[in-house]
């Protein structure tokens, strides 16, 4: 009987020890900081911007918004920053001769790994200009210059617009 109690006490000590070992680990997980990423955004209005359709020479009046967003991560020793940048077109267009209506909604994303504190990139965003009728679709190519930094600042401009048929 005494041997039984001694054995039981031994097991209880083992279980208690195991419990004590596991508890801090379990609670510790909860107290770890989750990886949080701040996303910065900017909407740039496009207001009555005239673009010549190289396909037929028609002027197309564009309106809408260019949406830019990014977040960044730094590597362990903070020597490199990775900027993840996304540019989206949300535009409508009206052909000034034919009255043809178009809608564009496309996006492109870029990842820039750099030692600089800012990312300074120029990229091409191709958007389908989807005709709202029997007119053929067109292709809008925008050259976008985007500068973002670790402080949440975004500078974005459309350097060049080009509409063509393909």
């Amino acid at each position: 009987m005494l041997r039984y109690f001694t054995q039981l006490r031994g097991w209880l000590v083992v279980v208690l020890f195991a419990l004590l070992m596991c508890t801090p680990a379990a609670f510790g997980q909860g107290s770890q900081d989750p990886i949080s990423v701040v996303k910065y955004t900017q909407d740039t209005p496009v207001s009555n911007q005239m673009i010549v359709n190289e396909c037929n020479g028609e002027n197309v009046l564009m309106n809408g918004t260019m949406h830019f967003e990014y977040f960044f991560l730094t590597d362990a020793d903070a020597s490199f920053t990775i900027f993840n940048i996304s540019s989206t077109s949300r535009l409508t267009g009206i052909g000034q001769t034919t009255g043809a209506k178009y809608v564009a909604n496309d996006s492109t994303s870029t990842k820039d790994r750099t030692r600089d504190i800012a990312s300074n990139l120029t990229t091409t965003l191709k958007s389908k200009l989807v005709a709202q009728g029997p007119t053929p679709d067109m292709m809008l190519r925008q050259l976008l210059h985007v500068v973002v930094d670790r402080n949440g600042n975004i500078k974005a401009e459309i350097v060049k617009n080009n509409v063509s048929c393909k």
Binding site: T108, T110, R113, T114, N120, L121, T124, L143
Partner: peptide, 22 residues
């Protein structure tokens, strides 16, 4: 084809980009 450009003080450029085509 698509064009991309970057201004940097680094002597190299490491970027991941999209090329979309029909």
């Amino acid at each position: 084809s698509d064009d991309y450009s970057s201004n940097t003080a680094d002597s190299s450029k490491d970027m991941t980009v999209q090329l979309s085509s029909d």
